[in-house]
Structure formats: structure tokens, C-alpha cells
């Protein structure tokens, strides 16, 4: 089966300074495959500085990987030109975090929808364009007459974020990169947007990469998860297994810190070690904060296979068989 998207050993290093160059490894040796005919929702989770937004920027082709390749439908995205590049731009869409920052306040919201229609010549006539807009807005649960012709400041955050999803939908994408789409939206509106995203995957066959630090919403919409910490994969697998029985100490800390709206399920008692910004990048990246750190953790841990759909990069599971990094996606259920 053809692959929609393939990341081959992708790393991204940001360096700064002219003489004493300091390198920050934002993403280290990530391999990942999304198949063409199996639309899925994959969560990439991690705290700030874990490399999740770098991953989004790479996938959208806004930055280029330092090493490794990103292959979209058989073509390396850094070498796309002309028609192919236009097709890539149309088929891979993004929804960003801040629904307030993406709108130009001087235009009505129609602008955000008409520009892509014109740019990609999606409509034959004005009426056709209007129909497509109405269709996309209805699909995300908005009434076209409520939002068309309005200025961004006249709409709520939830409405704006849904217009962003509608814009993505209009272009009939194959892949949607959603970078924290609900973190700035009121809790009561989150459900609507998440449901919209899930319907997009279920009814329109769009694969979604859902980037977030919020494991609660991730749990509800996605099938599989990759947990990143400072650019490296800590744990990955089926979302139910990872959230309900996390194996890596970092994932355990994350899951422990979710404020569940449940009085019987209190926050964990495990004390939190502060993140040491100057910690070395040698070995396991979580070592300086890990309550279980051992001597062996000074060498980088490989991925260990815990079961068919669960893997963790931690020496606590060293007796398990290893997983080569480029076989990671075989463990993710579609």
C-alpha cells in the first residue's frame, strides 16, 4: 500500500552563536509512516520544548530537516516544485493554536475562505464558490449566514477556530496538522471542535496529526500517540494502553499530572523534579528528572517493545525485544 507521508530518520538541530556555536537538538531521529488509505488520528504529545511544533513546521515544509527526509506520496517535500508543490500545499493543511492571530482584522472572514478557492481554482463560478463555502461551514457546525460577511472580532474564539477547520476542509486535504487547536478555546467549546476534527477523519478520510500537551483531549480523539520529550520519542503506541498504563517514567509523570475532573482520581504524589535546562543531551534525555535513573541511562536508550501496540524508550524494559526506530509506526494502530 502506498504511503501518504513518510518521515525517514528526521532530525532538526537549531544552532546559535557564531563562534561558540551551541546546538539545540529539537528533534532527534524520528521515523514515522502514515498510510494512504487508512485515515487515522495520531497524537504527538509533550511539554513545551519537546519538539512538537518543530515537527509541525517540518511536516508543513516551513523548515527543512537537518538530516533525514520527509517523503509525501513518494516525493521529498523539500524538492517539490510547480504543480506538485501546489498540490502538496493544498493537500496538507494546518490548524494553528491561536484562533485570534490567524485572521487579518481588516477583512471579513469570507476572505480566509475565498482566497484559497481562487488560488487553487476550486470553483467554476461565484455561485459554486459560495456553495463550497456553505458546505464547508455547515460541515463544521456553523451556519453560513451567521459567520459570512462578519469581521473576526465579531466572532467567538470557538467560531473562529471552526472557520479555520472549515478552510482546511474546503481544500479537501489528505493530511491535517492540528497544532494545539483547542488550547485557547473555552472548555465548553472544545468538545465541538474535537468532534469536528473526528468527523473530518471519519467521514472525509483525512488523516490528522494532533499536536498537543493535553492528554485528555488526545485520549478522546486519537487512535495512537507518540510522546516526545526534548526531541526524542519516549513512548508510543495505542492511545488507550499508553494513557491507562503508561510505562515510561516521563509518560507516567504526564498522566499523573492530568487534572481529571474526578474527585476520586487525585493528582499523583510523586514529587516533580525541576527541569534542568543545562542537562546534557547524552543518554536518556529524561535522566536528570527521572526518579528511576540508573547508571546505564547515560547511554541513549533504544525503543523496547512492550506489546504489539506499545513501545517505550527506557532501560526499565531492557529485557524486552528492541524496536528499530524506523519501525516505530508498525506499532501504531491505524
Amino acid at each position: 500500500m502506498a504511503n501518504l507521508l513518510e518521515l525517514k530518520n528526521v532530525s532538526k538541530v537549531y544552532s546559535r552563536g557564531l563562534i561558540n556555536t551551541k546546538a539545540t537538538i529539537a528533534l532527534q531521529d524520528i521515523s514515522l509512516t502514515l498510510r494512504e488509505n487508512e485515515p487515522t488520528i495520531l497524537t504527538v504529545a509533550g511539554e513545551s520544548g519537546s519538539g512538537k511544533t518543530t515537527l509541525a513546521m517540518l511536516l508543513l515544509g516551513f523548515t527543512t530537516p537537518t538530516t533525514g527526509q520527509i517523503i509525501y506520496r513518494g516525493k521529498n517535500i523539500t524538492t517539490l516544485h510547480g504543480k506538485q508543490r501546489m498540490a502538496f500545499r493544498r493537500e496538507v493543511q494546518a490548524v494553528f493554536q491561536d484562533p485570534f492571530a490567524v485572521f487579518n482584522p481588516f477583512y471579513t472572514v469570507d476572505h480566509l475562505l475565498t482566497v484559497p478557492i481562487r488560488r487553487f481554482k476550486l470553483a467554476k463560478s461565484r455561485a459554486d464558490a459560495r456553495n463550497r463555502m456553505d458546505e464547508a461551514l455547515t460541515a463544521v457546525g456553523l451556519r453560513p449566514e451567521d459567520v459570512l460577511g462578519r469581521f473576526p472580532h465579531q466572532l467567538s474564539g470557538g467560531q473562529r477556530q471552526r472557520i479555520n477547520v472549515a478552510r482546511a476542509l474546503l481544500l479537501k486535504p489528505r493530511l491535517l496538522i492540528a497544532d494545539e487547536p483547542v488550547s485557547m478555546v473555552d472548555a465548553s467549546l472544545r468538545a465541538n471542535i474535537l468532534e469536528t476534527l473526528r468527523n473530518l477523519q471519519r467521514d472525509h478520510g483525512v488523516s490528522i496529526i494532533y499536536i498537543t500537551h493535553d492528554l485528555t483531549t488526545a485520549y478522546h480523539i486519537s487512535k495512537s500517540i507518540i510522546v516526545l520529550y526534548r526531541g526524542a520519542v519516549m513512548e508510543a503506541g495505542d492511545i488507550d494502553t499508553v494513557i491507562k498504563s503508561p510505562r515510561h517514567p516521563y509518560t507516567q509523570l504526564l498522566v499523573d499530572s492530568i487534572p481529571w475532573p474526578n474527585l476520586e482520581k487525585r493528582w499523583g504524589v510523586q514529587p516533580i523534579k525541576a527541569r534542568d535546562s543545562g542537562a546534557s543531551t547524552e543518554g536518556c534525555r529524561f535522566r536528570s528528572r527521572c526518579p528511576m535513573a540508573m547508571e546505564i541511562c547515560k547511554t541513549p536508550p533504544p525503543l523496547f517493545r512492550i506489546d504489539a501496540h506499545h513501545t517505550a524508550s527506557c532501560y526499565l524494559y531492557a529485557e524486552q525485544p528492541q524496536v528499530a526506530p524506523d519501525h516505530l509506526s508498525e506499532l501504531l494502530p491505524a
Partner: peptide, 9 residues
């Protein structure tokens, strides 16, 4: 959202 009602929005 809770652990018991997965996928219900």
C-alpha cells in the same frame, strides 16, 4: 472529558 466516556463529545 473523562476516562470512561471515550469519544463522546
Amino acid at each position: 472529558p473523562n476516562l470512561d466516556n471515550k469519544g463522546v463529545f
